[in-house]
């Protein structure tokens, strides 16, 4: 499973510890999620999606996410 937690966290200027406290896990678990060492449970995935105020499929995916830069270029018709 793939996720955008690292990107979303960076966008919001959050530390792993702050995000971990918000969803009630240890900060190491956020690190494991970001590195792909651990797949979140449905409960944790929903909590993270709610925290970022995004649909869960915007945070987690079974397929690799398209790069944001590529998405932006596609949106502006630059490719």
């Amino acid at each position: 499973m793939y996720n955008r937690i690292a990107v979303l966290r960076a966008e919001r200027g959050l530390s792993r510890k702050a995000l971990a406290q918000a969803v009630n896990v240890n900060f190491q678990t956020i690190g494991y999620l970001e590195r792909g060492d651990y797949n979140a449970s449905l409960e944790l995935a929903l909590k993270l999606a709610r925290f970022f105020d995004l649909p869960v499929e915007m945070v987690f995916s079974l397929e690799p996410f398209e790069l944001l830069s590529r998405q932006a270029m596609n949106k502006e018709g630059l490719t």
């Binding site: 900060f27 956020i30 690190g31 494991y32 590195r35």
Partner: peptide, 9 residues
């Protein structure tokens, strides 16, 4: 466990 644990940041 991974040899390098994630930091708080």
């Amino acid at each position: 466990l991974p040899a390098e644990e994630p930091t708080e940041d």
